[in-house]
Simulated assay, not measured.
Amino acid sequence: MRGRNGNRYVVNLRKMECDCGKWSEFGIPCSHVQSVCKRWDVEAANYVKPYYEIHPYLATYRGIYTPLPGEHYWDTPPFELFHKETLRVSRRVASFR
């Protein structure tokens, strides 16, 4: 498969791999895979990683979550918290001032 920029990418549907690496990294078929699927009349959605499907997503939140108690129940931390504005501003943002 050739990309828009003329580079060649090898797509292997059986191994769920593309040379560009996006499919392996994100779990969603890249544009090269989608082109191959279109050419071979295959549904690209079948090659999305299972963790993007609705059932695993719902299973993530199926458990029981108990809310944290109010702050007055929390232990006192063994360190002091302080606020220093210069630590929160990035250099890029600070240069605009």
Score class of each variant (00 low, 15 high):
residue 3 G to D: 13
residue 5 N to H: 11
residue 6 G to P: 05
residue 7 N to P: 00
residue 8 R to N: 13
residue 9 Y to V: 02
residue 9 Y to C: 02
residue 10 V to Y: 08
residue 12 N to E: 10
residue 13 L to A: 03
residue 13 L to M: 06
residue 14 R to H: 14
residue 15 K to E: 09
residue 15 K to A: 10
residue 15 K to D: 07
residue 16 M to A: 12
residue 16 M to L: 08
residue 17 E to V: 06
residue 20 C to Q: 04
residue 20 C to W: 02
residue 21 G to R: 07
residue 23 W to H: 04
residue 23 W to V: 02
residue 24 S to N: 10
residue 24 S to Q: 15
residue 25 E to H: 06
residue 26 F to V: 10
residue 26 F to M: 07
residue 28 I to A: 05
residue 30 C to V: 01
residue 30 C to R: 01
residue 31 S to D: 14
residue 32 H to L: 03
residue 33 V to E: 02
residue 33 V to C: 00
residue 33 V to Q: 00
residue 34 Q to A: 06
residue 35 S to R: 15
residue 37 C to F: 04
residue 37 C to W: 03
residue 38 K to Q: 14
residue 40 W to H: 14
residue 42 V to D: 05
residue 42 V to N: 08
residue 44 A to F: 09
residue 47 Y to Q: 04
residue 48 V to Q: 06
residue 49 K to H: 15
residue 49 K to M: 09
residue 49 K to V: 13
residue 50 P to D: 12
residue 50 P to L: 10
residue 52 Y to N: 01
residue 53 E to Q: 13
residue 54 I to S: 11
residue 55 H to M: 11
residue 56 P to F: 02
residue 56 P to R: 05
residue 58 L to R: 05
residue 59 A to F: 03
residue 61 Y to S: 02
residue 62 R to V: 00
residue 63 G to V: 00
residue 63 G to I: 00
residue 63 G to S: 07
residue 64 I to W: 04
residue 64 I to K: 08
residue 65 Y to A: 06
residue 66 T to P: 01
residue 66 T to Y: 12
residue 67 P to R: 13
residue 67 P to L: 11
residue 69 P to M: 07
residue 71 E to F: 06
residue 72 H to L: 06
residue 76 T to K: 12
residue 77 P to R: 09
residue 78 P to E: 10
residue 78 P to T: 10
residue 82 F to I: 09
residue 82 F to L: 09
residue 83 H to K: 11
residue 83 H to T: 12
residue 84 K to Q: 13
residue 85 E to G: 00
residue 86 T to K: 12
residue 86 T to W: 11
residue 87 L to W: 14
residue 88 R to L: 15
residue 89 V to Y: 10
residue 90 S to M: 08
residue 91 R to Q: 14
residue 93 V to P: 04
residue 94 A to P: 04
residue 95 S to Y: 07
residue 95 S to L: 07
